Computed example of a mutant assay.
Amino acid sequence: MRRKTDETDIEINYSKELFVDTGNPVLNHLLKTLFYYMGKNVIIKAKFDLNHHLWEDMGITIGQFLKNEVESKKIKRFGTSILPMDDALILVSIDISRSYTNIDINIKDAEKGFELGNFKELILGLSRYLQSTIHIKQINGENAHHIIEASFKALGSALKTALEPSDKLESTNRVYEV
């Protein structure tokens, strides 16, 4: 899958091993974490003009990539994960059905590269293009690196569960012909 705009050029493809080169070391680290916890090996390559555009378009591209994977398939749909990382404890809950995002994070100890605004843009893009409800709640933590990395771990873990195949359509909303 490729997304090319005037601001970014992002490509994601399945691979035999996990490889990420976005030109942003922090985002590389976090995307490796996300896909590792999802249990998916991919190659991600990106070029960009501004970090904000990279993070936002990366969320959109990942959302499109995952949406293509599950289109017309029965999946478990729901996934929830609570994961710690040092001082941080994060809860992520997902419903792959329609777009909604709630991010309840308060970072006290900032760290360059781990900006909350860029993180939110990535999650918003992912939610919109995967058509998923994503709740991320910080239960504990102060360090930006720990909070955001734990969020990516929990997000990957929750997505892994939600994207698993299901024997049935996971919905009580049925369309009946009259």
Rank of each mutant, 00 (worst) to 15 (best):
I139D: 09
T161W: 01
K4E: 13
L83N: 02
R3C: 02
S97G: 02
E69V: 00
T8M: 09
D49I: 15
G141C: 11
D95N: 15
I44R: 06
F35T: 01
E11K: 12
S97N: 08
A150V: 03
Y176P: 00
H29K: 06
Y36H: 12
K16C: 05
S99P: 10
H135F: 14
T5V: 06
G39I: 01
K73N: 11
R174Y: 10
R98P: 00
A144H: 01
G125N: 09
S15C: 14
E142H: 12
Y37S: 06
T133H: 08
A158D: 01
L89G: 11
S171C: 04
I43A: 04
N140G: 10
K4D: 08
E170N: 06
K16I: 09
T172A: 08
E164M: 13
Y37P: 01
E111T: 06
F19M: 14
D57G: 09
V178M: 14
G125R: 11
I123A: 02
R77W: 02
T61F: 04
G59K: 03
H52Y: 15
L122A: 11
S97M: 01
L18Y: 11
A46E: 05
I147L: 10
I96D: 04
M1D: 01
G23I: 10
H145E: 00
L116N: 03
E121W: 05
S81C: 05
S127F: 08
E149K: 00
L50H: 11
V178P: 11
W55C: 00
G23S: 11
M85N: 00
P25G: 13
K74E: 10
L163F: 04
I139Y: 14
I10L: 03
K168W: 00
G141L: 06
I148G: 04
N106Y: 13
F119N: 05
F19A: 15
K40L: 15
R128D: 14
E11I: 08
L66H: 07
A162K: 09
L130D: 01
D95G: 07
E56I: 05
Y36E: 14
S15G: 13
M1Q: 01
